[in-house]
Design a protein around this nucleic acid. Structure first.
Lengths: 193, 193
DNA sequence: TAGTCGTTGGCACCTTGTGACATCATCTCC
DNA sequence: GGAGATGATGTCACAAGGTGCCAACGACTA
């Protein structure tokens, strides 16, 4: 038997998501989250660096998955290709967690501070992808641009995925966005006959 | 004769940049900035929504310039083209302010909170560019992707521009990044003979 | 001279976030 | 089985960011 109720971190996360969803991020104090989880403010800050971070714990796993997929993608002709393969792997991981993703994203969309944090998380993800590309021999500038562009595609597709009107799976939306991107950046490439 | 020293906003901005540069963002309190400007903390928060915003005032002008340039760019074959023209206009505007840009960027680079704010500013800029593209008949998804990609190119080029080792003008770096991007996203496009 | 208006100051207050120390249940070792 | 050791939690005090409210002040107008 545990000394305290188990899974303090999970309780704080669930309480935070619930309260942020009910009354909004600004209208929720850390003390309230802690109380709802049967803990104190001080303990909250031992698990999370700040009030926002409680919504972003777990993004490291996604990063590891994506970086690994970039590293193990088949040989490629263009740096964006392995990134595309990695995004597909990420989509497979996220698809079963759609309900959670939707609730979380609704909270983030309602608050600029949370959007800032979200952007930073994606930026560090892009940096990690760029590094993985360099390890596969891609030049510095091309690696950064392919990584950042890939993450942009991911973000746009993700936003469409969590949209209530959407019916498609995430991997499909990613493919669509990738296709649209290529058309928006360069003219159609004639297929070698 | 003025009742108070004129240009309270400018004094606060200069004091903030100086203090952030000297001792760092975290080690500078708002009260110190206000005192250095001959004002009080309360007045600081009347001009700036928060401690970070003092470094980002003025980005609206850049946004207006870029949006206008997207709107007035010549007819295009691919959505990224008018964005590229707009970035060139932005480079022309920024080139004379390089010293200020360098000092400001050094402060931002040293602090994650400021990087968050910077990313959000660029994100709203990208949204404005996407809207300008839509007004020129570009489809929704292509507009977003072209805008986000263009802003990414701009950010990468800007970072290289303010690098102490750099010698090139901003517009040149933007051209380079654009070229590299096209190569990183699609295979080389044969020119129609 | 009285009234109005915009800028600033003063003050109380709430919240985030941190440092230092106390508590308390379990585990280990003797 | 009892004495620490350990690790998670609580308690308290406090700095700093940020806001609401009202007073003070100087100029301009009637």
């Amino acid at each position: 038997m545990a000394r305290w109720e188990p899974d303090a971190l999970g309780r704080l996360q669930r309480a935070a998501l619930a309260l942020y969803g009910e009354r909004g991020f600004d209208q929720t104090t850390v003390a309230e989250i802690a109380e709802a989880a049967g803990l104190t403010k001080r303990t909250f800050f031992r698990y999370f660096a700040d009030k926002r971070e409680v919504l972003f714990r777990g993004s490291e796993e996604l990063e590891e998955l994506i970086v690994a997929a970039v590293g193990s993608a088949p040989p490629f002709t263009v740096p964006l290709d392995p990134v595309a393969a990695a995004l597909d792997a990420a989509a497979t991981m996220l698809e079963p967690r759609k309900e959670f993703s939707v609730r979380r994203q609704r909270v983030i969309a309602a608050n600029p501070e949370l959007q800032e944090r979200e952007r930073i998380k994606l930026a560090t993800l892009a940096a990690a992808v760029a590094q993985a590309l360099r390890l596969r021999g891609v030049g510095d500038l091309a690696a950064i641009l392919a990584a950042e562009t890939g993450i942009t595609v991911f973000r746009v597709a993700f936003e469409r995925w969590v949209d209530p009107a959407n019916e498609h799976p995430l991997d499909r939306l990613i493919q669509d966005s990738l296709h649209e991107l290529r058309g928006a950046v360069t003219a159609a490439v004639p297929v070698a006959s």
